[in-house]
Amino acid sequence: MQMITIKEVTTIDEIQIIKKLAHEIFHEIYTPIVNPDYVDYFIQKYQTADTIQTQIKKEHFRYFLLQFNDQNTGYLGVQLVKEKLILSKLYVLQSFRGLKIGKLALEYVYQLASAHRIPTIELMVNQQNKNSLAIYLKNGFQIIDSIVTFSPNGDSSEEYKMQKSI
């Protein structure tokens, strides 16, 4: 029987797993659509073990490992900010996509928002990430803004800010 589980990250070892997954998944997804230097910059800025630990301890983030038959297959990161829940990260290894892991993780995000009485979920998605964009639109998210972000070396990424009321 195939089983998907979502496990909250609470230890340094689990943070190291997230860091390793981030490196692999970000290159799978983003290297084909943005400059690889920007991908490396993003990982170094937001997905090091120290950064993840700081996000959890000081910035109201919660991270979760997504597991398929006890194998770490991806991760989820959310941030609780005032009247909204920010879906910061939802990534699944390419070899595990299509198994409903992301769908279950998204449902979990809705449950988290409901449990905290938060009426709005917000996220950012790269405009070139057509698969993720389609999934979010299919699940009732609406594009509310278009944003360009820059790395220190001048590389840029065009993203949509999306929102869903629950």
Rank of each mutant, 00 (worst) to 15 (best):
K57S: 14
A113V: 04
N35Y: 02
E24N: 11
L104H: 14
M1D: 11
L104P: 09
H27I: 05
L104R: 15
N129W: 05
E159M: 13
N72S: 13
A113N: 02
G98N: 09
I18E: 00
L123S: 06
Q128K: 15
A49L: 00
I143N: 00
Q94C: 05
I29D: 10
T149L: 13
R97N: 05
F150V: 08
K100N: 14
E122I: 13
N131F: 05
M124L: 13
T51N: 08
N129Q: 06
I86S: 10
Q47S: 08
A113P: 02
V92Y: 05
G140V: 10
I118T: 13
D50K: 15
T51I: 10
Q128T: 03
I143K: 03
T5K: 06
L104A: 13
M124W: 09
K138W: 03
K45V: 06
L99R: 11
K130R: 09
G74T: 07
I43V: 07
H116N: 14
G140H: 07
Q16E: 14
T11H: 01
A49I: 03
S156K: 12
S114M: 08
K19G: 01
Q142S: 13
S151P: 08
A113K: 02
V9D: 00
N35E: 10
Q55I: 01
V39G: 06
A105F: 04
Y108Q: 08
G77H: 01
A113R: 02
I143D: 00
T10V: 12
K89V: 06
E159R: 13
H116S: 12
M124H: 14
L85N: 01
Y38D: 01
N69A: 00
M124A: 14
E14I: 04
V78P: 05
T31G: 01
F141A: 11
I135A: 11
Q2H: 11
F42V: 11
R117P: 01
S156A: 07
A49V: 09
L66V: 08
T54P: 00
E107S: 14
I15N: 04
H116G: 04
Q111I: 07
P119K: 12
Y160G: 03
K82D: 12
Y160C: 05
N126F: 03
E59F: 10
T31K: 09
G102W: 04
L87R: 00
F68A: 09
Q55P: 01
F141C: 10
L137A: 11
I143Y: 00
F141D: 08
A113Q: 03
E8C: 01
E107L: 11
P152R: 05
I33N: 07
A115C: 06
L21Y: 04
Y63H: 05
Q53L: 12
R97G: 03
K138T: 11
I12N: 14
I86A: 07
H23C: 05
Y41P: 08
D40G: 10
N139P: 01
L133Q: 08
V92Q: 04
E24W: 03
S132K: 11
P152I: 06
K19R: 12
I147G: 05
V34L: 10
Y91E: 04
N153K: 15
E59H: 12
D145V: 07
V81Y: 08
F141V: 10
Q127D: 09
G77E: 02
F68W: 14
N129D: 10
N139M: 03
I29E: 12
N69R: 00
E28D: 12
F42G: 03
D145M: 07
K103N: 12
H60C: 10
I6R: 00
F150H: 15
D50E: 15
K45W: 01
Q67C: 13
K164E: 02
